[in-house]
Amino acid sequence: MTISRQDVAKVGLLARLALSEAELDTMTTELSNIVGFVSLLAELDTSHVEPLAHPLDTHNVFRDDIPLPSLTTAEALQSAPRHDGECFLVPAVLNESGAA
């Protein structure tokens, strides 16, 4: 599988990365190398191997539905670039939320 310059541009856009023309070239080469390296795995015969959904063998790790103390609002907001003491402030968002 090869990675095209277009693929990189699209992934860059989705990740909100402003890539310059030169960076696009570098990324295309480097990403292709990485994917090429990983694709070595495709040479293995995995037809008799159970699909693996998670590398850890443990499962069913739960906690009880018991409330724990939250942060104070001041603590929650302290690292925000901008806030009004109650809410985080961000540049105007006028359209609807992207997903539910």
Binding site: R63, I66, P67, S70, L71, T73, A76, C87
Partner: peptide
């Protein structure tokens, strides 16, 4: 539920903004 899906913050509706938050849900 009384608490959120992945942390112990309360799910009570109507609390003042950002009073039911912790490092996980932030």
């Amino acid at each position: 539920t009384r608490t959120k899906l992945f942390c112990g913050c309360s799910t009570q509706f109507g609390a003042p903004p950002n009073t039911q938050v912790c490092p996980t849900c932030l």
